[in-house]
């Protein structure tokens, strides 16, 4: 079996894409913490449920960004193939 340089680059891009989506760990932890504190806040003050929900969702959506950067890098490596 002959492995050309292009094949090697494709294989390494796939590994790199897999490594890039490890970035999903961070937003997962962050969103979990936000949701936990949101639940605690609703438990303490059930009247403010609407405000807490909207603030929590806004914060979670912003925290999600770093994970999405990893996703964008992975998709670029897999489908746009800038290196090969």
């Amino acid at each position: 079996m002959n492995i050309t340089g292009h094949d090697l680059i494709m294989a390494c891009s796939a590994i790199g894409a897999g490594l890039a989506v490890i970035a999903g760990i961070g937003p997962g932890i962050g969103q979990g913490i936000a949701a936990g504190h949101g639940a605690a806040a609703v438990g303490r003050n059930p009247g403010a449920k609407g405000d807490i929900m909207s603030t929590m969702l806004l914060g979670q959506a912003v925290a999600e960004t770093t994970g999405l950067y990893g996703l964008v890098i992975a998709l670029l490596l897999l489908f746009v193939q800038p290196l090969g």
Binding site: V62, E64, L68, L75
Partner: peptide, 16 residues
């Protein structure tokens, strides 16, 4: 950049 990438990546991940 962060504003546009956030929206783009969210919608793209759903599409994918």
């Amino acid at each position: 950049i962060s504003l546009s990438l956030r929206l783009f990546a969210n919608v793209l991940s759903g599409t994918v």
